[in-house]
Amino acid sequence: MGLFNRLKAGLQKTRSNLLGRLGELFSRSQFDDDFYDELEEILIGADVGVETTLEVVEKLRTQVKAAKVTEAAQVMEILKKQLLELLGNERKPIELAAEKPTVILVLGVNGVGKTTTIGKLASLFQAQGKKVMLAAGDTFRAAAIEQLEIWASRSKSELVKHQQGADPSAVLFDGVNAAMARGCDILLCDTAGRLHNKTNLMEELKKVLRVIGKALPGAPHEILLVLDATTGQNALAQARVFNEVAPLTGVVLTKLDGTAKGGIVIAVARELKVPVKYIGVGEGIEDLQPFDPAAYVDGLLAQE
């Protein structure tokens, strides 16, 4: 399957689930309160969140009224434009640092798919001819290191690891130094899943950042937060707190191949202005794709 098809297939469920109701909704001739109420439900049902939804719908209502729009297609266009404004119009790929290695730190709460995302990112960069190294910074979860090891061999990347229970900062410090010594283009740093309300774990993260910065000034160049598309409003709280501790440069939205729509990224982008960079649409090593905001919004609101 080609890249585009995989994206399409991944978003297909998003689409088909929304399609029925939206199609019906937009075939109405009247844009009355019922219309807006139902649109509200659809957006909330996609995990966009109450606050963001109310704002979007309210704005749509005013704009539709002001522009005296009567065509369903036009209303849809206005809605899409609004969502895209919130999400950011452009694709924002990972930018490599001027001098190698580019250090990428991957964060998130437990079970969102950090290690898997790293494995997929590694093979993505590998395919671009980059020399990639992985650093096993999740020293907490049982067998997390072994899991990364398997991804390293699948993606033909190098690996730096310590024992389970080791200090993650030490592992990543070694990782940065090894990546420099071996002339790697990219270092991907795995971290243990941590709930954002655990102060001690967030403190540990601060230390990780300090130590990486010490090993290589300017690093980490990218700090990616992995969000699970099935997560609801708590994802916003996660993004907020992680962003405070470690200024995020991007979001990776995983598990979009289910029926979840991951609408919370709209709320995240609206509040924190952090762009979504990649989406995960399957278990395969190639099932990670650059995020295309327009395609996502289309998928969310598709009317075939």
Partner: peptide, 10 residues
Amino acid sequence: DAMTGQDAVN
């Protein structure tokens, strides 16, 4: 997962 959103029903 207690953090699951609207998709929990599906």
